[in-house]
């Protein structure tokens, strides 16, 4: 399908990285504003992308607006580089932006991700682009946008705390395991996108810039490098990461987020790293050692 698009000559330069210059300027402005007000959701004009909404159109537009020819792109979906969506998006940018792509976290300058933050800590020269289905952490509690904007404006987040209260009252602990809301720079309440709460601490004082793009909801927000990011909790029920009894069955990692894999029809399972790049790196390091 991409071959049908006439991408050559001037036109190609004008729409480098798929989006036209005007659109990229608009999105870059939104990104700059988002970086200036950490955690604040900046509206932007969502453009048509050759991908169904909800499959990462927000992330793609952010990536398309910041990518340059010297960049090296990594795309992950649920921690894996080889899922259909990750492969398609990677090929898309290799074609429209003529950039190198990689599966290694360390090599990438831009990492576009859905549902995971890489295990290997990101560095100053890296940018993490997160695909976000629902940017508004309060949306499940308050349906009105007018109302949620007001709550953000007055930093009135008692309601979110009520949700944690209800969890503890009903189940004895906070059961929210994904999309666990955070306070950014002690000001805005933000959704870290549907990453497991295991990944939340990675956002705290991260060396890399994180940009969140929500295409369908037309919002961009960001966490600049070295920003305080705290998962909300109670003094006597502090935030906790998920823990596993076992380690990764492949690389033996004890510090990574594990997926449970079904092995056979008998229901036997084993746990392996969700971040395939991290797992492979560990394996090859182990082999070379």
């Amino acid at each position: 399908m991409l071959d049908d698009l006439a991408l050559n000559g001037e036109a190609e330069e004008y729409s480098y990285g798929f989006l036209d210059e005007q659109t990229k300027r608009m999105i870059r402005r939104a990104i700059l504003k988002a970086v200036s007000i950490p955690g604040y959701q900046v509206p932007f004009g969502d453009r048509e992308i050759p991908l169904p909404p909800g499959w990462g159109t927000g992330g793609i537009q952010v990536t398309a607006s910041i990518i340059g020819k010297t960049d090296c792109l990594k795309v992950i979906d649920q921690g894996a580089d080889d899922t259909t969506n990750a492969v398609s998006i990677r090929r898309f940018f290799a074609r429209v932006a003529r950039v190198n792509t990689t599966e290694s976290t360390g090599e990438a300058t831009i990492v576009q991700s859905r549902h995971r933050i890489p295990e290997r800590p990101l560095q100053d020269d890296q940018i993490l682009v997160m695909q976000v289905p629902q940017p508004e952490p309060l949306r499940r509690l308050v349906t009105s946008e007018v109302e949620t904007r007001k709550l953000h404006a007055f930093a009135r987040y008692g309601l979110m705390q009520v949700r944690l209260y209800e969890d503890i009252a009903r189940y004895g602990n906070i059961v929210m395991s994904h999309d666990y809301p955070v306070r950014v720079h002690d000001r805005y309440l933000a959704s870290p996108s549907p990453v497991p709460k295991f990944d939340n601490p990675k956002l705290h004082r991260s060396r890399a810039l994180t940009i969140f793009g929500a295409g369908r909801e037309r919002r961009i927000y960001a966490i600049p490098p070295f920003t305080d990011v705290r998962s909300i909790d109670f003094d006597d029920h502090p935030f906790e990461r998920q823990k596993w009894q076992s380690c990764c069955a492949r690389c033996g990692a004890e510090d990574s987020y594990l997926d449970e894999m079904l092995l056979d029809d008998a229901g036997n399972t084993q746990f392996v790293c969700s971040d395939t790049s991290y797992c492979n790196d560990r394996l090859s390091e182990g082999a070379s050692r």
Binding site: R156, Y157, G158, L159, Q161, V162, Y165, E166, I168, A169, D233, F234, D235, D236, H237
Partner: peptide
Amino acid sequence: GNISEPLMTNGHRHY
């Protein structure tokens, strides 16, 4: 939860 919400809005954080 209903009774606690106003307190949490005012910043109370001890369950």
